[in-house]
Design a protein around this nucleic acid. Structure first.
Length: 291
DNA sequence: CCAGACGTTGTT
DNA sequence: GTCTGG
DNA sequence: CCAGACGTTGTT
DNA sequence: GTCTGG
């Protein structure tokens, strides 16, 4: 899941939509930190794309700290392990299972050093697989009260993640990964995993404020999709597979609604999902069937 | 002791 | 089939 | 996530 | 770096 995303807002728009309550009880817009990676708006971004990431500024190993408590910083999506220095090969992870992060050698160092972050997206893509058929229908998932009018009132989807800082020759590279968990029953028809989504300021603060909230507590406080308010539930529509499947096609048409290629998909799924809705033919997969 | 792994995804 | 690159 | 490569020789 | 397996 969560292997392709979109974020078409410019840096200033993102900052405005990431306003948070500071420790002085004031609303603050996070300042952008500049490194040698560069965030650019993206319509169809695969792992390795540079994404906008919100983090506490205190664990970023900066020469000077930013003027805001939280800040935005460009990071490579696809976390490089902390134990690799220099040319890291291609060992990276763009998703991290929340079930595994506490016992994993890869993620424990990030958790222990407070490298918790929020990956800023406008939406993400998911490919629905159908058992027994070699067909995959891509969908775009997003939070936009106006539906698919991408020009106005864009709402962001904030994904809980972890990050790392690794040496890359003479420079320093920031990289991050998105936490995933089993999909809620209303989402399972599309895919059996989903990202951990943060909606409220409190949820964002719980995850980023690593000095006040230690990692085990922070993980416990991560919200479950099935508990989120109706206004935060994701919308979706089918998208054009010819465009979206090709990660080199970084164009707005990737996000546009398209007819699902197969009749059963368009009749059952080409509407916004309802809370509690389950598509009985596509239960979550399991690694091994019980029985 | 040293060597080698360290991850997710999909999927039946 | 499996790895790399986008 | 998907798409595309998957190789050697000789050498400006 | 740190844990597991030999």
């Amino acid at each position: 899941m969560c292997g392709r995303l979109a974020c078409t807002l410019n840096p200033d728009e993102i900052s405005a939509k990431c306003e948070y309550m500071s420790s002085k009880e004031k609303l603050e817009k996070p300042e952008w930190i500049h490194n040698d990676q560069e965030y650019k708006p993206v319509f169809n971004g695969p792992p390795t794309t540079v994404v906008a990431v919100l983090s506490s500024n205190k664990n970023l190993k900066l020469d000077k700290t930013s003027s805001t408590e939280f800040c935005l910083i460009p990071m490579r999506w696809g976390m490089l392990p902390s134990f690799k220095t220099e040319a890291t090969g291609n060992f990276h992870t763009h998703n991290a299972r929340i079930e595994n992060i506490l016992k994993s050698n890869l993620y424990k160092p990030s958790l222990m050093s407070g490298k918790r972050c929020v990956i800023i997206t406008e939406g993400y893509y998911e490919w629905q697989t159908t058992p027994g058929e070699n067909l995959k229908q891509p969908f775009f998932l997003y939070q936009n009260p106006d539906g698919p009018k991408f020009e106005s009132k864009k709402n962001l989807i904030k994904l809980a993640g972890l990050f790392n800082i690794s040496k890359d020759g003479d420079s320093v590279k920031y990289s991050c990964t998105v936490l995933t968990r089993e999909a809620d029953s209303s989402m399972a028809w599309m895919h059996y995993r989903m990202p951990v989504i943060l909606n409220t300021r409190e949820e964002v603060n719980n995850w980023l404020n690593y000095e006040e909230i230690e990692y085990k507590e922070a993980i416990d406080r991560l919200p479950k999709y099935e508990d989120c308010k109706k206004e935060f539930r994701l919308k979706h529509h089918a998208v054009n597979k010819t465009f979206v499947n090709n990660s080199s096609c970084n164009e707005a048409k990737c996000m546009q609604p398209a007819a699902a290629k197969y009749a059963y998909l368009s009749t059952l799924h080409d509407t916004n999902i309802q809370v509690g809705y389950t598509y009985s033919c596509l239960q979550p997969f399991h690694f091994r069937p019980i029985s």
